[in-house]
């Protein structure tokens, strides 16, 4: 059976690079599922979760905003944040969220505002994923 090579890369590291059977990702136009032999597609992703399935096993990765290139045998995701579900540290994410919220209450410049906003979204995405996994 054909497989897809899923690559998730952030400026800090290559988070994920493996052959998988299926990928779902949070596209800007809505959730989408990708199987092998997909037509070439370029789209953007929003904060959310990427699910990769390999042989009945699921991998979840929390991702930030970014770009996706899909070809017949590859899904390449460029994003500013990506953390595997197992690696999420809930306590630290919660702390980061509180810190970001506190910072947002202050008066900030445009650049800083954007940076803090995205830090907040990062921690929220991680927390959401963790919470959903528990239920």
């Amino acid at each position: 059976m054909a497989t897809l090579k899923l690559e998730i890369v952030t400026p800090e590291a290559r988070i994920f690079s493996e052959d998988v059977d299926m990928v779902t990702l949070p596209g800007s136009e809505g959730e989408m599922g990708i199987f092998p032999m997909h037509i070439p597609l370029m789209t953007q992703i929003v904060h959310g979760e990427v699910l990769a399935r390999r042989g009945g096993q699921d991998f979840l990765v929390a991702v930030g905003e970014g770009f996706v290139e899909i070809t017949a045998d590859r899904v390449a995701i460029l994003t500013d944040m990506a953390i595997k579900a197992d690696d999420i540290d809930e306590i630290r994410a919660e702390e980061a969220r509180k810190r970001a919220e506190a910072r947002l209450a202050e008066k900030l410049g445009d650049e800083e505002q954007a940076a803090v906003q995205s830090a907040l979204m990062h921690s929220l995405t991680q927390l959401n994923l963790k919470r959903r996994l528990r239920h």
Partner: peptide, 12 residues
């Protein structure tokens, strides 16, 4: 193959 863009090429 032609690449599809979502939502659109200029946007992407």
């Amino acid at each position: 193959l032609d690449t599809t863009f979502e939502p659109s090429a200029p946007n992407f």
